[in-house]
């Protein structure tokens, strides 16, 4: 029997298959045919201090081996989330990490203060410092080493729960930002968020996305994600959660070999939100075939 359990900070997850923020709702609103209890964990969509309508359409467009989105952080806001969503987590059967986004340091802090004032089954927070979709906020934290450090330090002082910083690939040196997060107390980093992209309609000469630019996701991103994870792996000691273009269990293995201790599935959930639960059996089979007892022993083992 292969051990698929993994550890981040003081929390043990039953397996390393998580779902990525913005691709799996709040975890309690996915289609009935999905058995979320099989997943290692769910990262919620980004939650902000106030509710957000999101961007005008068009918000998404298909691209080769991927898609571009610019949803604009449409979400119910933290108060509604606390009242209507959080109670359902006591019976959901998997671990919930709440993704939070803000446009000022205070907004991030206020969300965590509110969440920490209630009792909940949320095991941690993933900090969206890198969402390229919103014109205001987000972006500047993720591209600036000192702002990332300042934000991480403030939020660290507010919670004992897991603090995971989600990194943007749209930077010169992603490992430097990861190091800043580690130094200021992050328990883990997630990498990568979407890559800034664009798609143009040659008939109308307009961008296919209302906000002109959007975030590219899907299999087109996998090589970028793998390279980012490998770079970060050589710079930090905290666990890395690999994200970017995972559609099958062998993609998960690649991310582990590059240095990830867990992964998040994103765009694949739009084709089939039950992909993650099927991957778990496949991972066990792979580990058995290559005679390893624990999936964690694969972390960073790429032969360079």
């Amino acid at each position: 029997m292969t051990d698929l359990r993994i550890q981040i900070g003081n929390i043990e997850f039953k397996n390393p298959i998580f779902t990525a923020s913005g691709t799996f709702g709040y975890g309690n609103d996915v289609p009935d045919f999905v058995d979320v209890s099989k997943l290692g964990g769910i990262f919620t969509k980004s939650i902000t201090l106030h509710p957000r309508e999101g961007n005008p359409p068009p918000r998404i467009v298909e691209t080769p081996s991927g898609m571009i989105n610019s949803i604009g952080l449409a979400n119910v806001g933290v108060d509604h989330y606390m009242r209507e969503m959080v109670p359902s987590y006591s019976t959901i059967g998997t671990k919930i990490i709440m993704n939070i986004a803000g446009s000022t340091l205070d907004e991030y802090a206020e969300i965590i203060r509110k969440m920490e004032s209630i009792s909940s089954d949320i095991v941690g927070y993933e900090i969206n410092i890198s969402c390229p979709n919103v014109k205001k906020g987000g972006m500047e934290f993720g591209v600036d080493r000192s702002l990332t450090a300042e934000l991480t330090k403030i939020l660290r002082s507010l919670t004992e729960r897991l603090l995971i910083v989600k990194l943007s690939p749209n930077v010169t040196d992603i490992a430097a930002i990861a190091t800043a997060a580690e130094e200021c107390g992050a328990d883990a980093v997630s990498a990568i968020n979407t890559v800034v992209g664009m798609s143009i309609n040659p008939t109308t000469w307009k961008s296919n996305i209302y906000t002109v630019f959007g975030g590219l996701s899907g299999p087109a991103l996998k090589p970028i994600g793998l390279a980012a994870v490998q770079k970060i792996f050589h710079s930090v000691k905290i666990p890395i959660i690999g994200i970017g273009g995972i559609t099958g269990s062998l993609d998960v293995i690649e991310y582990f070999l590059a240095g990830a201790s867990a992964v998040q599935l994103g765009t694949v959930n739009f084709q089939d939100p039950s992909t993650g639960e099927r991957m778990i059996d496949e991972l066990e089979t792979y580990c058995k075939d290559v005679s390893i007892d624990s999936i964690s022993s694969l972390v960073g083992k790429v032969k360079n």
Binding site: R52, P57, I60, M67, N269
Partner: peptide, 28 residues
């Protein structure tokens, strides 16, 4: 993008909606 509400991609504007500073699912 998905047909299941997960991607939030297929937004359409509602008619005669009072604009509020903060709302979700009221304008779209």
């Amino acid at each position: 993008g998905c047909g299941t509400g997960l991607c939030q991609g297929c937004a359409i504007k509602r008619r005669n909606v009072k604009e509020k500073a903060h709302s979700y699912h009221e304008r779209y």
